[in-house]
Structures are given as C-alpha cells and as structure tokens.
C-alpha cells in the first residue's frame, strides 16, 4: 500500500512541477547574485546570502533558508492537504476503503508518501543549489568556507552540517504537513486543508514575533524553524535545534493522533 501511494504521488506531473518550482527560486536568486554581486545588507534578507557571494559551497543551506519561510510550506501543505481530502473529492476514497484498505493503514501510507515528498523536495533544492552555487557563485578553494563563528570549515564538515540542515528543515516541514494532513481527514476539500495548514503556519509566524505572546512562544510550531543556522556556528549550538526537534515532534505526534482518531471513527460520506 505504501509503495502504491508513493507511486501514485510521484507518478503525477503536478508533484514534479512543484519540486521544479521549488528548485527554480534559489536558481533565480543565484543568477541575480552572480550577475550583480550585490548581497543583502547585514541583518537583512535570508541568512548566508552575503557569504555565498564569495563561496558557493554554502549555497545549499542558504537556498533552504530562501524556500523555508513560504515556498516549501506551500508545496508541502498542498501535498498533505490533498492526501485524504483529494481522494474524497475524486470519490476514490470510498473505493480504497472497501477494497479494503484499513483506515489506519491508509493514513500510514499517505503519511509515508508525504514524508518522502518532503525529503525529495529538500534534497532536490539542496542539490540544485549546490550545483548552481558552485558554478555561478564563488567556489571553495579561493576562499575557505567558514562557520558563522569564523572558524574554517572542512568540506566534509560542511557536508555533514548541510545534511543535518536538510534533515532539520525536512522535520520542520513535517510539522506543517501534519496540520494539513489532519485537516485533510476533517474536510473533503483539499484546498481548505492546504490553506488551513498554511494559516496555522502564518499564525504561528506572527505570534513568534509578538512580544505579548512571550509565554506561548516557545511552544509555537515555527518558533525554532530558523534554528538550522545554529548548525553553522562553532561549536554547534544544539539547544534550539533539540527543542525545535522536540516541539515539532510533539506537534507531529499530536496532530497525527488527531488525524487517526478522527479518520478511523468518522463516516465516509464523500
């Protein structure tokens, strides 16, 4: 069933178009950067963009930083929102269930395909960014890569930290996915589920910046999203990353629990 779901998702042109668009944005940014050589001013713009001007090897991380706030969540939200509600809309949900596919099983299969989509998306963005970064922007040997703390970063270290960043960003995206996924079991409209997931994200982003929401800030899903920059400090600052991982994990578990509790007991009338 899991294999079938994954084939279904990756057999669609739409899936590949969204991944292509995700990769397109960092590429466009890189082209502009390489043409103009103008980086964002300190304290503004996405992280690392000034650094990648002289060193393209950091670009995968920077590219993830570019797609992380909006584009990646949108793509993930749509895929996750589509999962159950999409089947309900085409009417195929009832045929899957009477095939029979156990409801829990169906959830697991859908979730696996979403997870794989998230991973493929972040890896695709990083690999595109690496290729683009090395070719269009400065490359390694001329200027040694450094951490944010200014210490030198060997290629293997850089590789490890980039992969950790990819996994962390992927895990964060799974949080968005589970919101949309839960909503997808609640409504028969894929659009509503995707937008619901995105509004949760926007709401959380607004609250994180609000001083008045100080007491709840540390429990918001997007609170630790940008903590991936901590992978590039020397030594790595694990605290926020760990917390982000845990907070996100709690959201994922709770929302998937809710999705499960709701979907396994609800009437399928679509």
């Amino acid at each position: 069933m899991i294999v079938v779901e994954i084939r279904k998702l990756f057999g669609r042109r739409r899936t590949w178009v969204s991944i292509f668009l995700l990769c397109l944005l960092p590429t466009v940014v890189a082209v502009f950067l390489s043409l103009t050589d103008i980086g964002p001013r300190p304290g503004e713009g996405p992280a690392f963009l000034s650094a990648v001007l002289s060193n393209g090897a950091l670009y995968p991380a920077a590219a993830l930083g570019i797609v992380l706030p909006i584009f990646l969540p949108i793509a993930v939200s749509i895929v996750a929102g589509e999962s159950i509600a999409g089947e309900a809309t085409t009417g195929t949900l009832r045929y899957l269930l009477v095939r029979p596919v156990g409801r829990t099983r169906l959830l697991v299969a859908k979730l696996s395909s979403i997870t794989l989509f998230v991973l493929v998306a972040v890896f695709a963005v990083s690999i595109t960014a690496l290729v683009v970064g090395l070719n269009l922007l400065g490359s390694g040997p001329v200027v040694a890569t450094t951490t944010v703390s200014g210490t030198p970063l060997s290629p293997s270290q850089l590789g490890i930290r980039t992969v950790l960043t990819i996994l962390y960003v992927g895990w964060s995206m799974l949080g968005v996915a589970s919101v949309a996924f839960f909503l997808s079991t609640l409504t028969d409209s894929p659009l509503a589920a995707a937008l619901g997931g995105l509004s949760a994200l926007v709401g959380s982003t607004v609250l994180v910046t609000l001083d008045a929401a100080d007491n709840v800030r540390d429990y918001l899903p997007t609170r630790y999203w940008l903590a991936w920059v901590d992978f590039f400090r020397d030594p790595i600052l694990w605290r926020d990353i760990e917390r982000g991982f845990l907070v996100q994990g709690v959201y994922v578990v709770v929302l998937l629990g809710m999705a499960w509790a709701n979907f396994t007991t609800r009437d399928v009338t679509s």
Binding site: G43, G150, V229
Partner: peptide, 23 residues
C-alpha cells in the same frame, strides 16, 4: 547570536577581539 549570524567577543588579558560575521 542573531538570526543570520553572530558577533563574538574574545577576551584575553584585557585585550579583546571582536568577530562580526555578517560584516
């Protein structure tokens, strides 16, 4: 620490060194 970088101050025997990543 800041969102996109950091400013590090090193103190040694009364002198200091300041590393500003973003600049």
């Amino acid at each position: 620490l800041s969102l996109n970088g950091e400013v590090d101050t090193y103190g040694f025997n009364g002198d200091t060194a300041r590393w500003d990543y973003e600049n």
